[in-house]
Structures are given as structure tokens and as C-alpha cells.
Design a protein around this nucleic acid. Sequence first.
DNA 1: GATACGTGGTA
DNA 2: TTACCAAGTAT
Length: 373
Amino acid sequence: MRETPITPAARTKPDAPRATRPGDLSADLLAWYDQHARDMPWRTGPAARAAGQRPDPYHIWLSEVMLQQTTVAAVRAYFLRFTALWPTVADLAAAEDARVMGEWAGLGYYARARNLLKCARVVVAGHGGQFPDNRAALLSLPGVGPYTAAAIASIAFDRSETVVDGNVERVMARLFDIHTPLPAAKPELTEKAALLTPHARPGDYAQAVMDLGATICTPRKPACALCPWHDPCLARARGTAPDLPRKTPKKAKPIRLGIAYIARRTDGAYLLERRPDKGLLGGMLGWPGSDWAETTPVPAPPIEADWQPVPEEARHTFTHFHLRLQILTAQIDQGANPQRGTFLPPEDFRPSDLPTVMRKAFDLAHASFVDRN
DNA sequence: GATACGTGGTA
DNA sequence: TTACCAAGTAT
């Protein structure tokens, strides 16, 4: 959906030059954004903003945390669910940890969810339920780094702060034809981005640069012909745009192996564990099992039973390794006591509360429970 | 500065 | 199938 342009004059004069003033990059980008801003549930579009509507800082914060290393498409549904369940930061602060972790399941980078709760509670207990309105104070909040602090300050509070995310890095590397590989180029790209940041409409501008990177100045096959910065772009002129930004090569992912035990009690309860707060999938529910290592570890089962192997292993790729997970299942009688984990009855366990790798294991095990009847 | 930390979409 | 990529932060 397109926002109504707030500069109708630009429409009525078809021969008007694209540049408001020659060389005024931010103005050119804002003019583009007025017509091409994408619709997002957390966004107050340029027209609504011009009409005096203000974004809710809670919505901006929540969406920005969710958007860290995550696509808009993936975030949309999570954002709508979170705001429906917890309409204010005070509601979120009062929520149970397990409930919030369960709702975050599937979105990844679970430290974000742990810090989300910490941050909400700091805002309520330490700031009277109001988010700080400046970059420095925002930066002290859990889970809020340089990008997110600048995003909230500019979008929610009209501060002229510079957001530097992956989009901005790519756009700056191309606009100025910078060949230094990331992450070493970050300071230089940040400096360029800061030079372009306007004092007028900083929130719209921040979103505009990121939208430009997401829709026009894309990693592959950038649509330079449609770009409001076509003329000033050095990399476009030199033909280097598709190769920028350069990045230092990544290390290959090793393969790790593991075992997961999935026990189903006759009343439909499953044997689950809450993972420790630190480390991979920290704070999330999971199946008892082995650590994940280069060689197959053989841990003791969490409960005595007739364990049956599931024919297919669960395969999953994390940020820094591939995992192949062997699954063993067992039916458990009422009253049996596990040595590890807790039986969660159906009313206390939704498969959607599981992180994806655990959900994959569950889906494979479920088939074997059904087969066995 | 380097590493740990998820996931789903795409070529 | 594999590898890369996306609105980063914490340590």
C-alpha cells in the first residue's frame, strides 16, 4: 500500500526536477519515500506523520528488536501477536518468562527475547513505564545497541540520529564506492551515513534509507534505474554496485551430532526441559538429550523406558554449525519419575512454544507415535 | 577484533 | 543441496 504524497506540488508539475535542491540527497530520498514507503504494522507512514500522528515508542522498540537480523516478512505476525497479547510495555513487563519465550519461539536469536523482558522491566521499574527519548539513555537498555538506540531515537522521538544497519552499510558502500571489506569498513560507512542524516524528518529519513536498501539497493541485482540516488551514486557510475559491499569470507560450518529423547506419557504429557539462560537456545523449552559435538555422545536416557530410534534424523543449521539430531522415542506409564526434565501436560505445552530445531524433532517423533498407535 | 547467537527465503 | 543473506547485540 502506498502512502499519500505529502508534497502534492511535486505531482502537479510533471517537469519539476527530481532534486529539491541540486545535491540535496536526503531531500531526494524523502521525496521517494513519500511515494514508496512500505506498509508495516508498527510504522506511522509519512502521510500519517505529516498529519501529526506519532509512533508509539513501545511499538518501535518491539519491532526494532524483532527486526534485528530478521526479515520484515518474518516479524509481521510476531509483532501483531505480541501487541495483541501485551498492548503496553507494562503488560509485557508483567508477563511470565515462559509465556514470552514461547511466543518468541521460531523467531530465533533468543537472547533478544530474554533481553526484551529485562528491558521492559527496566523501563517500568526505572523509567516510570516511559522509554527514554534519547540515544544515550536508550543505549543503556538491555538488548539495545547502537543501531536500535538510533532507530528508536529517530523514529519514535524525532532525534537526528544515524541508523546504520546492513541496508545502510550497503547503500553507503555503493553511493561512495567504498571497497574496504566489512566489518572493517563499518566506521567509514557510519561516518558517511552521519554526513547525510538530515535534521528534518529524521524518523522518515531513517526508514527511507533502510527501505531503499531493502527494495532498490538490494544485495543482488540492484534496481539502479529506479533509484532516487541514481545520479550521485559512484558505484553505479563505475559499474561496481553489484559487487559492494565487500565482505571478509566466512568460515565453513562444521557438522555436530546429538541425541534427543522424546517421551510421551499415556495422558499425552511430554517430557521437556527448560534450557539454561545462557548459550544456544537459552531459556527455551527443549527435549532432554546429549550435548551437540563432533562425535556422537551417548547420554543416559532421562527416564527408564523402551527407547525406539526414529528412522529419520532431524537436520538443522544454526549460525555456526550444522546439526544432525538422532531421535529416540518412548511411551511412558503414569507415575514414572524422570531423572531429568518435567512432564508437561497438553494444557501446559504447545508445540509452537518450541524453537525450530526442537519442533523438527517433535514432528518426526510424532509420526512414529502415530505409526505405533 | 573475533566469536556466539536462529531462522526462513532465495538463487 | 548448499551457501548466502536479513532493520545487531553481548561478551
